[in-house]
Design a protein around this nucleic acid. Sequence first.
DNA 1: TTGAAAGCGCTAACAT
DNA 2: ATGTTAGCGCTTTCAA
Lengths: 337, 337
Amino acid sequence: MVVTLADVAARAGVSASTVSYVISRKRPISPETRERVLRAVAELGYHPNAGARALASQRSNTIALMVPLRSDMYVPVLMEIAMSVATAARAAGQDVLLLTGDEGIQGLRRVVASGLADAVILMDVELDDERIPVLRELAIPAVLIGLPAETEGLTCVDLDFTAAGSVCADHLADLGHRYVALLGADRTVYRRRTGFAARTLDGFTRRALERGVRTVHRSCDGGFSATAATVDEVLEAWPSLSAFVVQNEAVVGPLLHLLAQHRRAVPEDVSVVAICPDQIAVQPQPRITSVPIPAEEMGRRAVRLAMAQLAGKPTSGSTLIRPKLVVRGSSAARARS
Amino acid sequence: MVVTLADVAARAGVSASTVSYVISRKRPISPETRERVLRAVAELGYHPNAGARALASQRSNTIALMVPLRSDMYVPVLMEIAMSVATAARAAGQDVLLLTGDEGIQGLRRVVASGLADAVILMDVELDDERIPVLRELAIPAVLIGLPAETEGLTCVDLDFTAAGSVCADHLADLGHRYVALLGADRTVYRRRTGFAARTLDGFTRRALERGVRTVHRSCDGGFSATAATVDEVLEAWPSLSAFVVQNEAVVGPLLHLLAQHRRAVPEDVSVVAICPDQIAVQPQPRITSVPIPAEEMGRRAVRLAMAQLAGKPTSGSTLIRPKLVVRGSSAARARS
DNA sequence: TTGAAAGCGCTAACAT
DNA sequence: ATGTTAGCGCTTTCAA
């Protein structure tokens, strides 16, 4: 019914192991033999049986990807990371097993113990993620997307949010802004103990201080009315405010409308810089100067690191992707007051 | 190193086959034996090896899910469907293999021939999808999310967009509206030969006709300016227009702003009904009367149908999910003119 | 109600 | 450069 190694071997007039070695390239094969085998493979439409291969080789050639079910992350970014992982994995000859976040610790144990996956990539990692001790215990190749509090012995990938904050501060300082507000993620994000919001704040505040820029920080829920409350309050309290840094996708749109209502032109009166997916940044008019979330790169790197671990190379430590500021129409030199 | 069936058997003082049967429940086992085996399983933390199991049983207990890489679909809905599939699959004891849309036909062949998956669920099915002939040829359990042109012998799941169109027409007719515009998906959607836009139009137009409601239809790109062009044109040409039906997520927000600009109050002057994810519908003020996209249900049903096929039950035919209109604040009786 | 044993299709020593 | 063969860990007849 289904084509097996033996079928290919018979057809090519060689032994099964020769076929296996032609395919795995794990030992030299004469050009003629190789040729004949490959032809047989093609003619018969042979695909190695994954189960048999996994059983014999103790390798599933599969990476498990754990995606959060509910998340404060912007969904399109999660999706882009997941798809990027899938694409990069396939390019590396691996398949991807999709695990939902709520499979949690048990899911990890199961997938590893059953030999379903050789490595694990975890998304939406919290500062004090409960899956981390299990990862250490299982001692399986693993990559975290996001940065937990304690990274000792772990391999992590994330945007360098600290640097992202600094870059935003620098950009606005360069443009002459002296009073800048940072509108951060909403409270649930801070509460859920995801670290990126705090890291951005840190990098931003430090650099602003160095550059002599005064700052306010507000955690800001998404949506029009929540944003309105925060923005009104800040504008009221800080009349000389001339720039906003935003790191909440759901705040960018509302903020622009509010500024329009307040008769503050962007970028003439107020500059806006966001740390957000490009999709969000290029939507409004004017388009927003931003530090994009490198979703595709994060997925790609995670796979690369997982593969390195599978190959026995040590990779532990954090890969913090350097932020790139893309200057668009929403930031400009501070108007002389 | 890893716990095997044999380890469990030894520990429980029974044969390997007995352990296997305890786990698979494929033959009666005495309560005492079962008890001892299960204890051994728990004590040793045994997880059956997936490869060995697949090899011996010819069943991978895995469903392949093909997710489009780029899509005109609204990403959060895709994600919700995918996660719903993953959750439902696990509840049915299956794992999910994530395939990207661009693996295409080859990906399907590979996954099936290698025994990686027992069944396939395809998202983002086009009217004349190239994967369909392959599905027929492979004769593997498969479920399509979306409705192709020719469904003979296929198992499909989708929202009944025809009925969704009708429901919207009815709702507005009931409210006394006589002139209604349908703002449809953007041109790329029609071009990509996805059927849902046409089906909505059909159901809407027919029912409107029956109810004596006059209609205009415009395909409408997302975003503010594209929407503005369309809406301005329609309002200009049809002064007595009193309601909009929208089935493009990216048009809902802009439409509301435009109506405000035109000094048309919603719902006092103009009613708005959308066919869109709830997430979109509940965002604006007023919240939008809508027919939600039942993403979670679609994923769940797809898995259920796939499982039925795996169990040998015939499932071919289309599961068209009945639309439910949720009345919110954006629709009201037509104002007397 | 339980056990013994023959594979499932492949990989990787070990031979030659 | 290629062939032989012993498993990998499980399922499932066939026996008892």
